[in-house]
Write a protein that binds this DNA or RNA. Structure first.
Length: 803
RNA sequence: GCCGAUGUGGCGGAACAGGCAGACGCCUCGGACUUAAAAUCCGAUGGGACUUAUACUCCCGUACCGGUUCGAGCCCGGUCAUCGGCACCA
């Protein structure tokens, strides 16, 4: 067989598809395995090699599991709502539907050319009405349960894309898509109350097997802190100021209070406040700052004293000045803090800028002495004095606060509610009607899907209005409740919506009655293994875990958590060692590689190039090495004859089966391939192998280079497809050699090696070492102090030179 | 600033659980085949010393400094660098 791989790759892809060998069965006696990869956004640029690496990991695992007798579900789909298709539509006038269909076709063709064993009968497209009907359905269910709300808010607005962006989409003060600086704007925004699920999302992490850093990033994102709420009475008005603190033990060190510039207290008591003009001026100045300016740039403390109102210390009764400052955020805690400048860096800076008192309450815990207050003896703190342990001091204070009704223990989360709307055309319409009489009314479930209307012009309206707002046939409607005139919501959902539940639809992709049949969900869930990029670990994964948990509470899905296990692949960098990008011109197109080297070479190389979880630069010559390997494998055919085992190769085969089997499960494809290369070198040294051995080799390599292996399988008369042939098994006894080589050391330095029988005892090993010509000569020069034997590892002599 | 990860030849990377560092591949060099080149095959390949050369032998070597141990890429303490996450979160 000569090495024109391209000549048969397509043949096998066609045969696999015609025979449906990668179709998952909804009922089966076999154990199930649901492997999930992040479905792509079908961009106009097509796939790049990074996609190939992203899908190759679980591709290999699930192909192996299939050969091991699992009923495998390995699906693919398209996360096809999104800005690029819409921007393209604006530019060219082509309907996003048309653009999307073209792109999906292109992506599908590329995926098929790579030979991925996806179940193509289960393809999901988030932009299809039969799909987004259920995205809208889930939204309405959340509305029903009070998890959807509308609020007027300062939002991040991209003047170029003309859209409101979430904090996540505008990190660094720039639009994620076009990198224009964002500005602040007041808008009515839809929110999903994900904060109601903060605790559940945090606890759910305990029952899943995620990579440690994945888990950590999610914990950081949720950002739970435990502390206390304390109510401070105010002087001058009949009211209290409620604050949140993680350090109630430092209550006696409070010398001033700070509230956020937007704090409602200021509006309530504007008549009492002597310097309202200055306060409003400061508030305005803050409002003009973007989130970025407020948090990243300004490190100098600014603020204004609130005149006419001050706080009363709840224990000492002392009067405490009240300030506004933008270092306190309205969106966290209560938007108000008690300032303890002796033990908090930010309060300390503010106290210095504004000349406030500083009362230390923890001995040795001053800001000036150490960066952060740790354990130390409590001082200047009435009943806490003398306590030396932070935990103890906190609990003593909490007991006091609760007894006196001043405050209570509480928790806070950094996670914010999810801004759930975009002023865009190419997204799921939010199924809500605004009625003059009834207010906000949900579209009845029977009317779903609420379809996107056909429009002429995709340009967003001025001021960030959705293009849908210009379509009166869409906007004008009747209220489902009272039948009166009403207007439809014209915002659409963000792209995160469709991807929050797609793994459920794969389980029952064509179901018109429900998002998926419960029995099927029960069979397939949870996803056994989810692999994707680190960049989706917080947003997409937390959003989808939220939706899934909500559906669980609703009784729609049978598991609390959607994903049992999560891993991540590393990037493929350009040959220059830099992230691939169009602008750098270092992007590698998988189609080009397949044209020149074949899909099997591409697959082998992306898995061989390094640790699967780490980034690695592309190298054409390294890839040629993989092609050479496959060509040498193809040549094995001419060296294979007879049956049974080749004595010189038997142990090597069993060892390789063992290593490849376990390496694949650990995503260590590079060493699995290296082990097969080593075996191939050994076969070449021997010069021949049996047909039985060739069969083992071909099946071991099949998940990685399936086209070549199918071809070889067929040529050697294998039954059916190699892709569904049984995975090779090894005999543990035959992986063990009769004799092993161990090192002999003097004082830890290598002096030689000896062969000893496997499993031999200490005396035997030492005797063999001493009998060794080279070793004995050297031993004659020294005095032995101690003899060490570690079975299977080493013989070591502790010694000193003879006097 | 805080949290986490990583640091090994010319390159990508191996090394189970503290036991022969550098598997496997690439690059490079030498050889075979060829009129020639490409492809392919064979051999060498961490650095250095000794040696005419080979063999032998020795020394150095896993970011840096120190420690534990018969023995450290791996464990401990410290430093530096790179990458990622969070960041005025009270």
């Amino acid at each position: 067989m000569k090495h024109e791989f391209a000549s048969f790759e397509q043949k096998w892809q066609t045969l696999w598809e015609e025979n449906g060998i990668f179709h998952a069965q909804d009922q089966s006696d076999k154990p199930k395995f649901y492997a999930l990869v992040e479905f792509p956004y079908p961009s106009g640029a097509g796939m790049h090699v990074g996609h190939i690496k992203a899908y190759s990991g679980l591709e290999v695992v699930s192909r192996k599991r299939r050969m091991q007798g699992y009923n495998v579900l390995y699906p693919i789909g398209f996360d096809a709502f999104g800005l690029p298709a819409e921007n393209y539509a604006i530019k060219t006038g082509t309907h996003p539907r048309v653009v999307t269909d073209t792109n999906i076709k292109h992506f599908s063709q590329q995926l098929k050319r790579a030979g991925f064993a996806f179940d193509w009968t289960r393809v999901v497209d988030t932009t299809e009405e039969s799909y987004y009907k259920w995205t809208q359905w889930i939204f309405l269910k959340m509305f029903e349960k009070g998890l959807v709300f509308r609020d007027r808010a300062q939002v991040n607005y991209c003047p170029s894309c003309k859209v409101v962006l979430s904090n996540e989409d505008s990190q660094g003060g720039q639009c994620d898509i076009c990198h224009t600086d964002i500005v602040q704007k007041t808008k009515d925004v839809w929110y999903l109350r994900i904060t109601a699920y903060a605790e559940k999302l945090l606890q759910g992490l305990e029952e899943v097997d995620y990579l440690p850093n994945v888990k950590m990033q999610q914990e950081n994102w949720i950002g739970k802190s435990t502390g206390a709420f304390v109510n401070f009475a105010l002087s001058g008005v009949e009211d209290t100021l409620r604050i949140y603190t993680t350090r109630p033990d430092t209550l006696f060190g409070v010398t001033f209070m700070v509230i956020a510039p937007e704090h409602p207290l200021l509006d309530t008591y504007q008549d009492r406040i002597g310097n309202m003009d200055a306060i409003l001026a400061y508030r305005d100045a803050c409002a003009k700052k973007t989130e970025f300016e407020r948090t990243q740039l300004v490190k100098d403390k600014t603020g204004v004293r609130v005149e006419g109102i001050s706080a009363i210390h709840p224990i000492t009764g002392k009067e405490i000045p009240l300030f506004i400052s933008d270092y306190v955020m309205m969106g966290y805690g209560t938007g108000a803090i008690m300032a303890v400048p002796a033990h908090d860096q930010r309060d300390w800076e503010f106290a210095h800028a504004f000349g406030a008192d500083i009362i230390p309450v923890i001995q040795g815990g001053n800001i000036e002495e150490c960066a952060y207050p740790g354990d130390g003896e409590m001082i200047n703190s009435d009943f806490l004095c003398g306590i030396k342990n932070k935990k103890e001091a906190i609990s003593a204070m909490l007991t006091y606060l609760e007894e006196k009704g001043i405050g209570e223990a509480g928790v806070q989360f950094k996670m914010k509610d999810w801004a759930f709307n975009r002023q865009r055309y190419w997204g799921e319409p939010i199924p809500i009607v605004h009625c003059e009489k009834c207010g906000i009314v949900p579209v009845p479930f029977e009317e779903l899907p609420l379809r996107l209307p056909v429009v002429e012009n995709y340009e967003p309206g001025e001021g960030g209005e959705s293009p849908l707002a210009k379509i009166s046939s869409f906007v004008e409607c009747h209220c489902p409740k009272c039948g009166g005139n009403a207007k439809r919501e014209t915002d659409t959902m963000p792209q995160w919506a469709g991807s929050s539940w797609y793994f459920l639809r794969y389980i029952d992709p064509h179901n018109p009655q429900s998002l998926a049949d419960y029995d099927k969900l029960k069979y397939w869930l949870p996803v056994d293994w989810y692999n994707g990029g680190m960049e989706h670990v917080t947003r997409h994964m937390i959003y989808s875990r939220f939706w899934h948990r909500f559906l669980y509470d609703l009784g729609v899905v049978p598991t609390k958590e959607p994903y049992a296990k999560r891993t991540a692949q590393g990037l493929i960098l350009g040959a220059d060692g830099v992230k691939m990008s169009k602008s750098r011109g270092n992007v590698i197109d998988p189609n080009d590689v397949i044209d020149k080297f074949g899909a099997d070479t591409l697959r082998t190389y992306v898995l061989f190039m390094g640790d699967y979880g780490s980034a690695a630069p592309w190298s054409d010559s390294s890839m040629r090495g993989c092609k050479r390997f496959l060509e040498r494998v193809a040549d094995l055919e001419s060296k294979a004859k007879g049956h049974g085992a080749t004595p010189k190769l038997e142990s090597a085969f069993h060892k390789t089966i063992k290593k490849v089997s376990s390496d694949i499960e650990e995503l260590k494809f590079n060493t699995a391939i290296a082990a097969m290369m080593t075996l191939l070198n050994q076969i070449d040294d021997v010069g021949s192998l049996t047909l039985d051995e060739l069969s083992v080799f071909v099946r071991l390599l099949c998940p990685i280079a399936p086209h070549l292996c199918e071809e070889l399988w067929q040529r050697m008369g294998g039954e059916g497809f190699c892709s569904t042939a049984p995975w090779p098994v090894y005999d543990e006894a035959k992986t063990v050699d009769a004799e092993i080589e161990v090192a002999v050391q003097f004082n830890g330095k290598l002096k030689g090696t000896i062969m000893i029988p496997t499993g031999c005892d200490r005396d035997t090993a030492l005797a063999i070492a001493k009998a060794d010509e080279k070793i004995s000569a050297q031993l004659a020069q020294v005095e032995i102090i101690k003899e060490i034997f570690v079975p299977g590892k080493i013989v070591s002599f502790v010694c000193k030179p003879k006097a």
